[in-house]
């Protein structure tokens, strides 16, 4: 196995395109576990943390660009980013322990393509896009279009994610992410739910995005859930309708961490609770 430390995106793309057996290393919190378990045997490890532009969080046209090598701890320490997108930052702050958060990245969480990845529903609810660099140049792709199955992504040969973009946050908007795990820390989501809402000047919901995690092979961005909220004031009846829609949208599997019936129920409960938090944030109550 070789170890490469490109210092530019072009170098990383060239290395990746030249060697189909190469693997990218961001924080390594998924990659190293798989490497040590013998699940993967890459020819080359390409460490992206020496690419300066990928290690920074920057403001861009009122939104935010988060480099693919930025660890979640750094996002959590960024007061302005957290003020704009608390749900996204909190979702990244749920990944593993302090030690894991010192290394784990949003892009790694996304490209690992686990159905239970915590930051993914939060990013999808926020309308995040991933910037992808490859042999043919760069393109921007909605986060929900990156994972295509368990452990699979839509990235082509020689392509990598260079950053995640969070759009400018409109006035009277808020986001939230909640997950259910049997403990309070250090566990894999049984269900996760990210919600984003915008209110009009009458306090009615004018825009909503609802994303469910861990209840299908890939994240679900649910229009039927969003429709239960749009046009309402986020009252109890609307939240009950949201919960019912979320339970209906969830297509989970039975496993040791939860049955289908349990996961569907929890999807509804979490959607309702996350919506309350997002609404409070949009109203400026929290």
């Amino acid at each position: 196995m070789r170890f490469e430390t490109p210092t530019s995106v072009d170098q990383a793309v060239a290395l990746l395109a030249a060697d189909p057996e190469a693997r990218l290393l961001a924080g390594g919190t998924d990659l190293l576990v798989r490497l040590r378990a013998g699940n993967i045997a890459p020819s080359t490890i390409i460490d992206i943390k020496r690419i300066a532009e990928m290690t920074v969080i920057s403001q861009e046209d009122g939104g935010w660009r988060i480099g693919a090598a930025v660890p979640s701890a750094e996002m959590n320490e960024h007061a302005a980013l957290k003020a704009d997108w608390p749900g996204v930052v909190e979702s990244a702050d749920l990944i593993g322990s302090t030690q894991i958060q010192g290394r784990a990245t949003l892009a790694g969480n996304l490209c690992n393509a686990s159905p239970a990845a915590d930051s993914v529903p939060a990013m999808v609810a926020a309308g995040a896009t991933a910037r992808i660099a490859g042999p043919d140049g760069t393109r921007d792709v909605a986060v929900e279009d990156i994972p295509t199955g368990v452990g699979k992504t839509s990235l082509g040969k020689g392509e990598l994610v260079t950053s995640i973009h969070l759009p400018p946050k409109p006035a009277r908007s808020g986001d939230a992410y909640l997950r259910f795990i049997p403990r309070t820390e250090m566990d894999i989501a049984v269900v996760g739910c990210g919600i984003y809402v915008t209110l009009d000047d009458q306090g009615k919901i004018s825009d909503a995005r609802v994303a469910l995690g861990a209840v299908a092979p890939t994240v679900i961005l649910s229009q039927s859930c969003a429709d239960t909220l749009i046009g309402t004031a986020g009252d109890d009846a609307a939240l009950d309708a949201l919960a019912a829609a979320a339970s209906a949208e969830a297509k989970p599997i039975d496993d040791k961490r939860g049955t289908i019936a349990f996961r569907k129920d929890v999807a509804g409960v979490l959607a309702k609770r996350a919506a309350r938090i997002a609404l409070a944030r949009a109203r400026g109550d929290s």
Binding site: L32, A73, G102, R103
Partner: peptide, 10 residues
């Protein structure tokens, strides 16, 4: 300055 697991770092 960042706390990490040395088992998950090359």
């Amino acid at each position: 300055g960042r706390l990490v697991c040395s088992c998950l770092m090359l």
